[in-house]
Computed example of a mutant assay.
Amino acid sequence: MRATWAVLAVVVMASSARAEENPAAREVMSHMTRGARNTRVGDWVTYRFDGGAGGQRVYYWRMAVVGEEKDKQGRDAVWVEMEAGTHPAMKSPLMQMRMLVAREGEQIQYDAISRLYVGNPTDRPQEYSQEALDHVLKKMGQEAKDDKLPHPDEDKEPLPVGLKPVLRSKKESRVMTLAGTVSAVQLELVVKKTVVKRMWISREIPLMQLAKMEIPGIAHSMEVAEYGVDAKPRMVLPPPSAPKVRLEYADSVFPNLPDMDAPQDAAPEEASP
């Protein structure tokens, strides 16, 4: 999940007050305000991840909004399904998740998950108990914090001259992707003269607004492969009376997706029962 939260951090940053201070964030905001539409039920997007090794470490990740209802706190919320596998059409997926996520207006609050189901090739989907869900959310929140792009005002200790990461942008342009050509703004995270991470943010791509991501140093990449507006629920949910995942099994059942920022030896691991 680390790559996912890293991308979300970029998008959130661009919509915050910092957009007034950061030229790169201002460029993203300017791009997004020219025709970006709000997320709706039915939106979906599939990404292709390449972990290097001549294409031997390729897998796909799909995200879709498949329903809406009120959550336990009475907030407007949407059901978001995620799948990962080695086939773009998610034949025999290695992982499935379905979560109820609150939204404010039309913006999905990815840190406000109130229900969670997880399935894998060997076990039927199970819902997480509240204790297990709280544990997973705490873990995911820490990963998001670790991946968050640094801001000069947040540095506890000054970094040596030249080592402070700099986020820079280019003007909106047309970019080719596996899903076709889209308008996008290129962002680069640079340390000294080295590009650590390169991203293309596009208002045309639903949900995450990410067209591409590259990590040149380790030859890893992520690129939109398909997207659309006709998503339907695909996870077969267990009956309400089915046992839930308990706290002691939360980590073993929760899928361990590869981290884009680190070398990978394989596609996503199959979750343990």
Rank of each mutant, 00 (worst) to 15 (best):
K171H: 15
M176N: 11
M29H: 07
L210K: 15
Q96F: 10
D50K: 00
A24G: 01
V253C: 15
F49E: 02
S272A: 03
R203Y: 10
D146C: 12
V196F: 05
M97N: 09
A262N: 10
D50L: 00
E269H: 06
V195I: 05
D259Q: 01
W5K: 05
I215M: 12
V101L: 10
Y60C: 13
M13N: 09
T4R: 09
R234I: 04
G119N: 00
A242L: 05
L133A: 04
E188C: 07
R48L: 11
A250D: 04
R168G: 14
E20A: 03
D43C: 03
G105Y: 13
S183L: 05
R57Y: 11
A3D: 13
V175K: 06
R26T: 04
L116G: 03
R75H: 06
V80H: 09
V253P: 14
P93Q: 02
L8V: 11
A211Y: 13
S30Q: 13
W44T: 08
G35L: 02
P121I: 00
S221Q: 00
P255E: 12
D153L: 13
A64G: 01
A211S: 04
D147Q: 14
A211R: 06
P240M: 06
D153M: 12
R103S: 04
L247S: 09
A53Q: 12
V118N: 09
E270Y: 14
M13W: 10
S202G: 09
Q142M: 15
R48K: 15
N38I: 03
K192T: 15
V136I: 13
Q186Y: 05
K197S: 05
E188G: 08
A250N: 03
K145N: 14
A267S: 02
L257Y: 08
A24Q: 00
Y59N: 11
E104N: 15
M82R: 10
P23S: 01
P152I: 07
M176C: 01
I113N: 12
I205M: 07
V11G: 03
E68K: 09
R48Y: 08
T177H: 02
K192L: 15
A219E: 00
L187Q: 01
A84S: 08
M213H: 15
K170I: 09
A3S: 15
H151S: 10
A266Q: 01
P152D: 10
P258C: 08
G52C: 02
S92D: 12
P240A: 02
D71Y: 03
K156P: 05
V196D: 05
I201T: 12
H151F: 10
L210Y: 08
A89S: 13
V80W: 11
V195Y: 01
S16F: 03
D134Y: 05
P239I: 08
K70E: 04
A231N: 15
Y110R: 14
L149F: 13
A262D: 04
D76V: 05
A84T: 15
A19H: 06
M208L: 12
L189T: 10
E68V: 09
N256L: 09
E223G: 00
R115Y: 04
K91W: 03
E188L: 06
S183V: 02
D155M: 14
D123G: 01
A36M: 09
S202D: 08
L178G: 13
D50Q: 03
E21W: 14
M140T: 11
